[in-house]
Design a protein around this nucleic acid. Sequence first.
DNA 1: GCAAGGTC
Length: 618
Amino acid sequence: MIIDSLVVAEKDSVARAIAKYLAQGSITTRKVYGIKTYWFIRDNRQWVSVGLKGHIMDVDFPEELNKWHSVEPSKLFDVEPILVIREDTISYVRALSHLGAVTSTVYLALDADSEGEAIAYEAMLIVKNVNPRAVFKRVLFSAVTRSDIIEAFNSPTNLNPGLAKRVFTRMILDLTLGAVFTRALTLSVEKADRNALAKGSFLSYGPCQTPVLNLVVQRALERENFKPEKYYTLHIMVDANGVRITLNHEGTFKDKQEAEKALSLVRSKSKARVIIANYREDSVEPPAPLDTIELERRASRFLNIRPKAALDIAEELYRHGYISYPRTETTIYPPTLSLRQVLLELARGEHSDYVKTLLGMSIRPTRGDSNDGAHPPIYPTRGATRQEILRYFKNERYWKIYDLVVRHFLATLSPPARVERQKIVVDVSGHRFSADGLKIIDRGYLIIYPFESPSEKVLPRVKIGDELSIVKAWIEERETEPPPYLSESELLRLMKRYGIGTDATMQDHIHTNVIRGYFKIRNRQCIPTPLGKAVINVLSKTGNELIDPLFRSRMEKALMEITNGSLRPDDVLFTFKNEARKIYEKFINRQGEVAMELIKALRNSLNKTNRGTGGKAS
DNA sequence: GCAAGGTC
């Protein structure tokens, strides 16, 4: 067997698409060590295309350093983790070796991002090992379409080692910091009380998970330390040509007597004079095309479906051909995507009437501001009815997520809604009272996307100078309210702002904290447990660096310098390990105190939940 | 028994 060219893609669907676009003639599918491969002829030569399952290698410490009890955690700072083959990818390694051994050219067709570059490097290592003479070429495409793929294979480039090195350095730092502090937290408790942690449980630290926990804990503390204060609001009801409107005093009163003084002044008057009467037409634009984070946030807000569940469901819908690839940071439809074609497909589905009206109009899609260069925004790829989805997946939530993707897609092609924003301000002896109203003139995209419908409140028409009779005036006593716990939707927004995690992993970092017993989610709110608060508190005794929400972005920034060429991987490793080493020293110096606090929190959690906590290893 | 990042 001789192969001229071997194509390695990041996933099966891409490998299959590449074969389809490059093949001159038919494609034969063969399993090699259980892995699907696609065989075809191009320019009279034999080509084979294979898709991986993401990374095939991982970093790990050498065996002897993985004995938690006999190795002082700080030892891990002194060694470099090694690249190992992942247990679950052995058949991919076998297939790559088998095919690579008889191939002259290897096309590394991994995604066009830094992870893709690292996976390309891993694939190259595997093939080089069995075939030192193989030639490696890197192909980069921004969408899996015929024109992009052919263009990419006509102009191959070389692997970018700077990008790959950055990824491996990140992997090493994440593992080292994670392992050192996970072991330090766990061992400090185990040494003080060997029964404090349930069997198989441990207390974890991670450069993403722990800053996320910190965000949740800080908000909870703000809420718990909140002291409610009384304040007073003043209102009047006026008659405007037979319509009664309530207006609120601009500014509230801390002091009850002052509010009463204002009230008696207002009550002594019978008229309120209009000083502002605005009726302004405005448009409400439909949302930008959907990326992963927005899908998760909207699923949580509109449908009460947790981010992790939303992504899992989206993944299934994608695998069965109902929606496009759900892990994307792109919010601009690529010019190669025929929106009209998608509409024609959707005409077979649940919202066919709406789709048909859209088809009769000129389409101008909304446009966001990001493009990850690898995947388009999430859009439906098959029109389906509710009944069809329910029959297939037997679960209402699949329909809800599918329907959200369809409606969102249709919204991005729909006209904006038109509203009238209304504002009336009146004056009563120097006191200003105002009322805001909103009238929907044309629902536009809200017809198909009711989730964002503003509530309508229509004010009557008045003009500046009108004298409106005051019907009544009154005071309300209120209390300032504590901020709510962070919602999952807000947490995702904060993670994005602070640069914690990626589109594909943000929901994982939330999930990890839940599994570890650090916080719970009730009614879409993130509520920390005593254990979660204790972990943040003990780590904060070493300074705030490790738990700072900006820690991750500081790390990413330094790692970026490797790609620029201004720093070497060793420089970045040295800087962060050194910083972590100092923090570790502080931690060890207060170990006794730390252990006491964690054990107390563990017992507290145990009593509350009446079962082991600290999280089971998954 | 550690992390975070791909992918299913």
